[in-house]
Amino acid sequence: MNDEQIIEVITRMFREVFDDESMVITGSTSQEDIEEWDSLSHLRIILLLEKEFGIKFDIDRVGSLTSVGSIVQEVRNLVRR
């Protein structure tokens, strides 16, 4: 699975969680760009990613995944393992 495909999945999740079909997500989108991306919606997204990819994030690192780029990288590492 390449980065574009992962971003595609993440985009779908962001659109569902924030209920905004027009949301555009790129690797450089970060928590600062999306007002509603607070710690609660962050947790929702993490849970969904775990379910979608069958992975488990390292709890110590979850808090630092504040940009789409860092999430993509983490997902890629965990999926490969």
Partner: peptide, 14 residues
């Protein structure tokens, strides 16, 4: 449960 966590905003709007 996951569906509800995910779609809270949508369901509230409905």
């Amino acid at each position: 449960s996951i569906d509800i966590l995910l779609h809270q905003k949508k369901y509230r709007k409905i």
